[in-house]
Amino acid sequence: MSAITHHVLFLQGGAGLKDHQADQVLVDSLQGGLGKAYRVHYPLLPDEPSPDLGRIRQIDQEISRLQGELVVVGHSLGASMLLKYVSENPDKIKLKALFLLATPFWQGDEKWKQAFKLPEDFADQLPQDLPLYFYHCRDDQEVPFAHLALYGQKLPWATFHPLASGGHHLNDDLRAVADAIKSL
């Protein structure tokens, strides 16, 4: 029996219990692809009555709980808030890599979006040696595929995986992400 030697934190997309349950299939696929030497941590991130739904505080709390270099995977809202958190706290944490799935690039002047938007200089605030991996499907019906290109303009050193199909949940198959994590 092999011991757990690597920890991966998965941050849900959307809001609340329903979206947490929907992303469980992604977590199960990732855990299956990683095998027994990895443990995928998947906390419920409940909505809080704050403009960012409490995500920045929750992400900080969850990352702080795990020791050592950490791989973090975020889906949708979880991915965008993870990127915001890391760009606002570049020296606070040591991460091994970020994997960002179906990541919205928040734009617009609507008041509700302001807490989700990245600052204009967010790319300059990220550690340049932090590996960033983006995965996005062309047929995503929730987050436009064009958002991947917006991240490409801001983060040219990142690794981008445009996928032909799979929708917002990447066909509930994260074997390619698991393989990339194991290759780190």
Score class of each variant (00 low, 15 high):
residue 93 I to Q: 12
residue 11 L to I: 13
residue 150 L to Q: 13
residue 95 L to V: 12
residue 163 L to K: 12
residue 180 A to G: 01
residue 12 Q to Y: 08
residue 51 P to Q: 08
residue 119 P to R: 15
residue 165 S to V: 10
residue 157 W to G: 06
residue 173 D to R: 02
residue 76 S to L: 05
residue 93 I to C: 02
residue 36 K to N: 06
residue 17 L to D: 14
residue 145 F to N: 04
residue 109 D to F: 08
residue 175 R to F: 11
residue 120 E to G: 00
residue 97 A to L: 09
residue 56 I to K: 00
residue 58 Q to D: 15
residue 63 I to P: 00
residue 1 M to C: 09
residue 49 P to E: 12
residue 31 Q to F: 11
residue 115 A to V: 08
residue 47 D to E: 13
residue 83 L to F: 06
residue 31 Q to C: 13
residue 10 F to L: 07
residue 46 P to R: 12
residue 148 L to H: 08
residue 143 V to C: 06
residue 173 D to C: 07
residue 149 A to L: 14
residue 30 L to W: 01
residue 94 K to D: 10
residue 86 V to H: 04
residue 11 L to M: 03
residue 169 H to Q: 09
residue 18 K to D: 15
residue 17 L to H: 13
residue 26 L to T: 01
residue 31 Q to E: 14
residue 113 K to F: 06
residue 112 W to D: 09
residue 31 Q to W: 14
residue 159 T to R: 15
residue 22 A to Y: 00
residue 104 P to Q: 07
residue 63 I to D: 01
residue 80 S to I: 13
residue 86 V to S: 01
residue 106 W to A: 07
residue 139 D to A: 11
residue 64 S to L: 06
residue 71 V to M: 07
residue 163 L to N: 04
residue 111 K to W: 06
residue 135 Y to H: 10
residue 136 H to Y: 04
residue 150 L to Y: 06
residue 130 L to G: 09
residue 45 L to F: 09
residue 43 P to M: 01
residue 74 G to N: 04
residue 102 A to M: 09
residue 17 L to W: 12
residue 122 F to E: 04
residue 14 G to D: 05
residue 108 G to T: 11
residue 132 L to V: 05
residue 153 Q to D: 15
residue 84 K to V: 06
residue 127 P to R: 02
residue 22 A to N: 10
residue 153 Q to S: 13
residue 181 I to K: 02
residue 161 H to S: 13
residue 50 S to W: 04
residue 76 S to Q: 07
residue 133 Y to E: 14
residue 122 F to V: 06
